[in-house]
Design a protein around this nucleic acid. Structure first.
Length: 388
DNA sequence: TCTGGGGTCCTAGGACCC
DNA sequence: TCTGGGGTCCTAGGACCC
């Protein structure tokens, strides 16, 4: 039986949600994120804004220069998550297996559903109509015999696209897309390819495996070979090999004051520990990330024998890492803290003895509960306030 | 232009063990 | 005295994606 995959990818998702929620923004250049006077980048923008050259990940200042009359709004992640959950639920009505790949994108395994559901293109059209009717948003759907082709196909006719890579036309399809636009080829790989005189997928197919390996290393060579033939290089892992939880913050002005860094680490320690506990995970490895005023970035991490159990413990460890990594010669632009290699089995084995952090752990779990209730209260309050 | 925040995977080298 | 091969764990950095 032939495999059939859909990749469903929302069009300009954050910007479309904002336009839908605020009809005044419809048809206008709308930019989410990249607020004036702040350090930051554009998270998403409407197709009207793209005409000015604005795109996501663009620095705020550049976006303002290119599109001075654009409407700039802050990111409302909670709202996008709500809409995302609704859309994923819609997908699950049509597909036996839905793998969510990001907030606005999912892979649907439609293999073997044709008798029950109809031809792939017809089902895709029904999904698009359903999403449009229930959320007012458009989604582009790509269809292919593997997830990689489906992913590229979802991008092929954006926005509001529907494209199927037909059997036997995989190579032709790959060759119709500029090599540097293929998923998985970023800035560095493209620079490397160009330097090696490679600019098309056909060239990659024509080079021997040995030659490719010599130029790019085994892993990258296999990846490039796979995608040049339109094969799935492993675009989404059903079970991630490791999990992490991290928070980071970029200061509006670079910081040289140790006390400020210390305060920020205290805050970050609570954030990441709460989030870790909320998920029911545990971790023995704490990582500190620093970005200095010259934009150089480095990390340092430590692995203990036992999982971290209290924010105070995390905080103390983070201070040690900071002392090791920061020589005070440069001010700090960004500081971040994260747990690596989290144990997600929930078996986060409590130590044999009631250790000194045990009490604190209990306190923090209680605070965590309070916190989530507090958030709900805040939401309720906010909702009440909004009513005239 | 002046560069967010949250993730995942890979690589290479060192330590340590058998 | 010189020196293997494999495995695992850990670290730091890098690449890429949304």
């Amino acid at each position: 039986m032939d495999s059939v995959y859909f990749c469903a990818d929302m069009d300009a998702f954050f910007a479309s949600v904002e336009q839908h929620d605020n009809p005044d923004y419809m048809g206008k250049p709308l930019i989410v994120g990249g607020l004036e006077g702040h350090r930051g980048v554009v998270s998403a923008c409407s197709y009207e804004a793209r005409k000015f050259g604005v795109h996501s990940a663009m620095p705020a200042a550049t976006a303002h220069k290119l599109c001075p009359d654009g409407i700039f709004v802050p990111v409302r992640m909670k709202r996008y998550k709500e809409v995302s959950d609704h859309i994923m639920e819609i997908f699950s009505r049509f597909a036996p297996e839905v793998i969510q790949n990001s907030i606005d994108e999912a892979f649907l395994d439609m293999t073997g559903t044709e008798k029950l559901m109809g031809k792939p293109e017809e089902v895709a059209a029904r999904i698009k109509a359903c999403v449009k009717e229930e959320t007012g948003l458009t989604v582009s759907i790509g269809i292919g015999e593997n997830r990689y082709l489906a992913k590229l196909a979802s991008d092929y006719r954006k926005p509001d696209g529907l494209y199927q890579v037909k059997k036997g036309q995989e190579i032709e399809f790959i060759d119709s897309i500029p090599l540097k636009k293929l998923w998985g080829i970023g800035k560095s790989t493209w620079a490397h390819l160009e330097k090696s005189g490679i600019s098309t997928a056909a060239q990659i197919r024509n080079l021997s495996d040995t030659l490719m390996e010599g130029m790019f290393g085994k892993g990258a060579a296999e990846f490039l070979k796979a995608i040049a033939y339109g094969k799935d290089p492993g675009i989404c892992m059903p079970e991630p090999k490791s999990r992490s939880v991290s928070n980071e913050t970029t200061f509006e002005q670079d910081v040289g004051d140790y006390a400020v860094l210390k305060d920020t680490l205290l805050w970050l320690s609570h954030q990441i520990l709460f989030r870790l506990l909320e998920k029911g995970w545990s971790s023995k490895t704490l990582a500190l990330k620093l970005r200095l005023d010259n934009f150089s970035t480095s990390t340092i991490q430590i692995t203990q024998d036992n999982a971290f159990t209290s924010a105070e413990e995390v905080f103390q460890a983070s201070l040690l890492l900071l002392q090791k990594k920061w020589d005070r010669r440069h001010n700090v632009r960004l500081i971040g803290l994260g747990f690596q290699n989290a144990d997600i089995t929930g078996a986060g084995q409590p130590s044999l003895f009631e250790d000194i952090h045990e009490k604190q752990n209990k306190v923090e779990k209680a605070v965590l509960k309070l916190n989530s209730r507090f958030r709900q209260n805040q939401m309720i309050k906010a909702a009440l306030l909004k009513k005239p």
